[in-house]
Design a binder for these strands. Structure first.
Lengths: 327, 327
DNA sequence: TAGGCTTTGGTAAACGTTTTCCCAATTCGT
DNA sequence: ACGAATTGGGAAAACGTTTACCAAAGCCTA
């Protein structure tokens, strides 16, 4: 390449990076040679020399679930706008897969991590990252022991609000369906429980062993709604669970919201389009992604900076899956 | 690192790569030193020297849509099992973003591409990849001009089958809703049209300008169903469109399937959980991802190999959103 | 006009590996 | 017991950049 333009490699580098003046003559020689050869600088070599790759590892529990794919999308897009590449990895909440990815990304010399950890097994991985002094921002989780940047949402308040909404509608027997606690912040559940006990309302909590897909929500709801003395309202602690609940209700010929009120959590785009449109506690998905990237850029610019935490608020979005209690 | 084990760097390399015998003594010295230092080989330097990165660029149109996120998941998982990293990129069908990603991945020296191109603007990008001699496998698209490996599905047959199903149920006025043709294979539409004309059935085709999200499907369906002489059945050429159609039907107080039959396309996991469960033409999503990776590995192992094409079949899955025509 | 500053270009070291080449030591065959 | 073959190890080149340093030339100022 340098040969093609009959110029030194240093000059080529300078033209590309524009970090020193190069005479118009040489510059145009280089530019046209680049064009002729379809030259692309080798980022591998750049990374080696600069020891920075402008890539960040993005670890997401289950990329195929709507909430996570939307979040991944938001992160990736924001990163891209700042000229960083996001390496999306789906950890499926398997600690060993999570570990394999962390290894891989570390080996790959990513500049930073955005990490949506599962509860079990993530702490050790996280420690390995921070020990290397690589910036991380955690999403929706914190580990008491380690001081790292975080984007949190008001899970407790959200749980409280969702339950409160059902209580205000006069429901006195409320079911709560919740994913495996390893894959969902407990605060969300505690918030709901607090509202429920404050109001002295009958609560029936079901914690699923599996993840929060449609199927799991469906099965849990089926079981809950078929027992005698079924609840008149269900608070599903994730929208995909709520979709399963709606399905179960339809299967059992229960009308929503007349016979059963349903509240979800997340506000994935699907929530507005199921039938009936789902009342849900909205997470600001795009804002979460943007905040995570923003914090990360701070840390990257100023490696000495103290960890930052930003807290974003959930908001109850009332649609048509909830109604006053008929009984 | 070599110093820590009191051994030459060549020996370290040999222990790690196991490409030559190293005496047990030295090997264990190296291994324990690696352990003490928490050493990770620098993939950047490896890539530079080996000019192979064991990473493949995965270009997906809209990662936040269920079909694509599931496909991405399948690809990533299969790649991972073969010890390759997938770099997921969401091109959003914007030619300039697509180009930016191709540039970036080329610069990043990925070993190969899995490319789900949009129609417009992808051909030039594809050409830049193949000119460099980098293996690519295209998903669900082919460009006559360029000879590259492909995973195709029987879109024509699928379109035909979906329409045929409605015809067999006695529908004589059928609406077809289809995403922008830049983001959907025409064959799917042609297949449907062929079945329709063969049967001499009234068809009303609506091609949306926007992508295939719930919202777009909803709006198109609303418009189609509000006109006088509305169809008794709708064939939505993507499940997310179908979800929008179901929503529109509910909004207009049309019962599905009594007043309106709906057929989708894709068989995303949601399809079984909407109400009513959606009859749809299933794509073998996981098989597509696996086939793409399999072909890619062939190409990678044997760079001279001729491009391969595999064709996978769609299959009609009958659920409860379709019924005999009542009129 | 000589000495110093500025500008512009080139040279070479460095990044952390892999790989090639070569040497020494050991084993083997005769 | 001697040469050949095999084995285990190190030294150094190579990968494609960036960057510190150097040299030459032009320009200013005293």
């Amino acid at each position: 390449m340098a040969a093609e333009a009959q110029v030194s490699i240093a000059t080529v580098s300078r033209v590309i990076n524009g970090n020193r003046r190069v005479s118009p003559d040489l510059r145009s020689r280089v530019l046209s040679a680049m064009d002729r050869l379809g030259y692309q600088p080798n980022a591998i070599a750049q990374g080696l020399r600069r020891s920075a790759t402008r890539s960040v590892g993005v670890l997401i529990p289950r990329i195929h679930e709507p909430f996570f794919s939307t979040l991944a999308f938001a992160i990736e897009r924001t990163l891209f706008a700042s000229d960083y590449r996001g390496l999306l990895c789906s950890t499926e909440e398997q600690p060993d897969k999570e570990r394999a990815y962390v290894d891989m990304l570390l080996t790959q010399q990513v500049d930073a991590f955005i990490y949506f950890p599962s509860i079990a097994g993530s702490q050790a991985n996280l420690r390995r990252i921070v020990e290397r002094g690589i910036p991380v921002v955690l999403i929706e989780r914190s580990f008491a022991e380690l001081e790292v940047s975080r984007v949190l949402i008001s899970n407790f308040q959200g749980g409280y609000d969702g339950a409160q909404h059902l209580i205000a509608l006069g429901h006195t027997h409320i079911g709560v369906i919740c994913a495996n606690l390893a894959s969902m912040p407990v605060e969300r559940l505690s918030g709901a429980q607090q509202a429920l006990t404050e109001a002295g309302v009958d609560a029936e909590v079901r914690i699923m062993s599996r993840g929060s897909d449609f199927e799991a929500g469906y099965e849990a709801a089926l079981d809950m709604l078929q027992r005698p003395g079924r609840p008149t309202a269900v608070f599903a602690l994730a929208d995909s669970i709520a979709v399963g609940v709606l399905h179960a209700a339809a299967y059992l010929d229960l009308r929503v919201p007349e016979d059963l009120s349903v509240v979800g959590f997340d506000n994935i785009s699907l929530a507005a389009f199921v039938i009936p449109p789902l009342t849900t506690v909205a997470q600001p998905i795009y804002a979460i992604g943007e905040a995570a990237v923003r914090i990360l850029l701070h840390q990257l610019q100023d490696p000495g900076a103290a960890p930052e935490t930003v807290m974003l608020n959930t908001e109850l979005v009332v649609r048509q899956s909830t109604a006053p209690c008929a009984r």
